[in-house]
């Protein structure tokens, strides 16, 4: 799973790069507009180390932001799963908050909270949270009737049990959504850094953009892609292991 993620990314990245180099060759563009292979390689050597730590900095915010958004999505999803007035109110509120583009809210967040860690974390969580919420709400609001029915008629159904049943019966969906949301959390963090932070790979991209240095931006994209592929690969592997264990505990081979 991990290696598949990495080579899939490498294929996409190099197809993109070749496309850019073709445009450069066809239109006879200078290295200022699209850098040549030599310049990209040279820049790679120069900034690899710095960008690696920048991406790891971004990654730390991403992971934490994703954890927060998972907790938030599950919190709201569980609270809003009922078709009661309160459930519907929570859902509508959650949807309405998301209606504001985060990029528009980001400057306010930065003014209020400064351009440090908290702002980046908040923006990353907000960008990652909504798609997660939609999936969690969908899962939590759909009863697993054949299992739940037994507990309901025996009077043993509690909300914790209901959540557990729905979560484990949809484990495959949940792990897919969580691993997919890693990309969103990363994108959220980079957007936050790009807008106003003073650290991370998004910030480095902004500096490179000031200097119209596309070679640096290409290196940054490479680093982001590789690291996020590894992270997603790890999440997927973890998800697979959880599913396998769950399946074994149920006495089956796979879910």
């Amino acid at each position: 799973m991990l290696f598949r993620r990495i080579y899939q990314f490498l294929i996409v990245y190099f197809i993109g790069l070749i496309f850019l180099l073709l445009i450069k060759a066809v239109l006879s563009l200078s290295d200022y507009v699209i850098p040549g292979v030599g310049l990209i390689t040279e820049t790679f050597g120069q900034v690899l180390n710095t960008y690696f730590f920048d991406v790891m900095n971004t990654m730390s915010v991403t992971v934490l932001g994703q954890c927060i958004s998972i907790a938030m999505a599950f919190g709201v999803g569980i609270a809003g799963r009922k078709s009661s007035w309160m459930g519907s109110f929570i859902k509508v509120t959650a949807y309405n908050i998301q209606a504001y583009p985060i990029v528009a809210l980001a400057p306010i967040i930065f003014i209020l909270l400064g351009d440090g860690f908290i702002s980046r974390l908040l923006i990353a969580s907000m960008i990652c949270y909504f798609p997660l919420l939609l999936s969690v709400l969908g899962i939590m609001a759909t009863p697993v009737e054949d299992i739940e029915h037994f507990y309901i008629i025996t009077g043993r159904m509690r909300w914790q049990l209901e959540v557990k049943i729905r979560a484990f019966e949809n484990l495959s969906k949940i792990t897919t959504v969580i691993s997919g949301s890693a990309t969103l959390a990363m994108a959220g963090t980079i957007v936050a850094e790009f807008i106003a932070a003073n650290a991370g790979i998004g910030y480095s991209i902004r500096v490179a953009l000031y200097q119209s240095d596309l070679a640096k931006i290409l290196v940054a994209l490479f680093m982001i892609g590789i690291i996020i592929s590894i992270y997603q690969g790890c999440l997927e592997t973890l998800g697979e292991q959880i599913k396998t264990r769950w399946s074994v505990s149920k006495g089956g081979n796979t879910i």
Binding site: L27, L29, S30, D31, Y32, V33, P35, L39, Q211, S212
Partner: peptide, 25 residues
């Protein structure tokens, strides 16, 4: 200018010098 989307433009000296360094005309 290079991509042919504009005929004239405004740039600061650092942008011009950086572009010349990278082969822009």
């Amino acid at each position: 200018l290079e991509l042919g989307h504009s005929d004239f433009g405004v740039a600061s000296a650092d942008q011009v010098i950086r572009a010349l360094d990278k082969g822009a005309k």
